[in-house]
Design a protein around this nucleic acid. Structure first.
Lengths: 299, 299
DNA sequence: CAAATGTTTTTTCCCGATAAAAGACATTAT
DNA sequence: ATAATGTCTTTTATCGGGAAAAAACATTTG
């Protein structure tokens, strides 16, 4: 079997959406950049589009013959990367209870259960190890360190150090830096979301990530920027399993973001620091309350 | 070929050193913990020791017959992990000039050149990526980011944040914490090294790492502790290729460490902060001067 | 009967092979 | 002559297999 053609399938699906917009497709290299794949894959896509009667393809002319129907698309689950499949599977097991700290992780068993080769599982675990949730015993198994309160505290400690520093760097950026325009755009999106929070509260998570990444990027430090991957990953799954008071939480967070944005725009370092800390504190609390731990002291 | 028996060979060599000390070896499980390998490997080792007439082995009795000779040992290069071999090879290419930023890294070529399978190279690159020196293009090659001045500055920025915080946490540790004894021991080793610096200056690097790791551990934050791996790795190779004024540099550093240790023992946060910053500043300068970059402004 | 040894099973580590995807080179069209 | 298409080559992603090492189970020994 060796390799699934999910890159092709995913690009094909995205390619189908282009058909709605034009009567004829652009050149192969252009399509390649548009879809983020090589020409080889573009040609495979075009070949199938021709086969299913979506386009007439002759050299440079790629005329759209009909609009795509729902069943022209490949099923979503066939467009996932193996890495995504393994990650989801792994996180489900991790969060579906019974995943106590100290538990050992078995590559072979995981691979069999997910139905993939051991190599992919190994690679996943190596990549995943940087999240600080698992640890390798040399020549032996991995050990689960557990999604504990300690983990959340260690994670947020770093996050706070990094973000406070990034926010300060952000505020110190010159007026002509393009980030200010990005910030304006994000502010608009926040206002829009705030006004429709009742129905769109679940879109906050994605906006949240974009906002914080913008700030972290101002640090111009790859380690800080990269660390946001850890945060994003944890919060991503956190949002998935802890839906309690999601609307209220997000509403509060949007408000905090707007205050934070205003502080940044004021370029007053004191205000920035205060707004940033306030938001990070409530983000930390949200995360902490989602981790039930025996004998935990209320904060 | 599939898997080399370097674990066995390395443990065997270490096992040989035990023969000098006693007339009879302990039980198999005990040897296992001692050498950090499983009983299976212990038994393979014992079998060979018996074969080469080093011991007489009968069930529980493992009598030493003779002292090991130099050629009883396996050659050093056969005791390395594949990961170590790849790392060394990779770093050599990286530092042996001609490794400019933006250059692309070819898994297959690397594997062929080192004489290993692609899987091992892939796994190495994934693990190595956390050092911030390479980056993956999805479904494509890795890109070298280069050991640049910017890299060194980003690295040291984080190091300074983390270590200053760790040092403060260290100083705040209760008197009965075992770390104070560890610190005393390290202090003695520093004094000893200082007195024999003329001949033993090259032993500093190892002492340096132990000292800083002890401090970082006081943070009780896995991300801080783990980050020291990045620093250690960079400094390790840095020491290998930049021998200019090594003795002087190390002599200065030992002095700074002693002042730093004294500050920690005083438990005066102001002093700790000052000593820590002073040392980190000179460590940064040492690193920076080793990175020749065109158009660089003298600091 | 607890701890060691003896034996068997399972897992990790690593390679080679293969399809998907990318990339390079050759040819053609505007 | 530039940019596209057509074709061929190389590289990446992934699997299955096999030896090394670990771990589990069974038996013996003090």
């Amino acid at each position: 079997m060796s390799k699934s053609n999910n890159v092709y399938k995913d690009a094909y699906n995205r390619g189908l959406r282009l058909l709605d917009e034009t009567q004829s497709l652009p050149s192969e290299p252009e399509l390649g950049t548009l879809l983020g794949v090589s020409r080889t894959t573009v040609r495979t896509i075009l070949a199938r589009m021709e086969e299913t009667g979506l386009i007439a393809w002759n050299k440079r002319s790629k005329t759209v013959l009909r609009a795509p129907k729902p069943d022209d698309f490949f099923p979503e689950e066939e467009t996932d990367t193996l890495a995504q499949i393994i990650e989801r599977s792994f996180m489900r097991r991790l969060l579906a209870g019974g995943a106590e700290a100290g538990m050992q992780i078995n590559e072979l068993e995981l691979a069999r259960e997910i139905g993939v080769g051991t190599t992919s599982v190994r690679e996943f675990l190596i990549r995943f190890s940087r999240f600080g949730l698992i640890e390798k015993r040399r020549n032996s198994h991995w050990v689960l360190k557990g999604f504990t309160r300690a983990f959340a505290l260690e994670l947020t400690e770093i996050r706070e150090m990094f973000e406070i520093r990034s926010a300060a760097a952000f505020a110190a950026l010159p007026q002509d830096s393009p980030v200010w325009a990005d910030l304006d755009r994000l502010e608009d999106e926040h206002r829009l979301l705030a006004s429709e929070i009742a129905t769109r509260f679940n879109e906050f998570s994605e906006l949240d990530e974009r906002f914080h990444r913008l700030i972290h990027r101002a640090s111009h430090n790859r380690f800080i920027v990269d660390f946001y991957d850890v945060i994003a990953m944890i919060f991503h799954y956190h949002y998935q399993w802890n839906k309690a008071q999601e609307r209220e939480r997000n509403e509060v967070a949007v408000g905090e973001h707007l205050a934070y944005i205003a502080a940044l725009k004021s370029r007053d370092l004191g205000k920035v620091d205060a707004a940033c800390r306030k938001h990070l504190k409530s983000a930390r609390n949200t995360l902490l309350t989602s981790i039930p731990e025996i004998g935990r002291i209320a904060s």
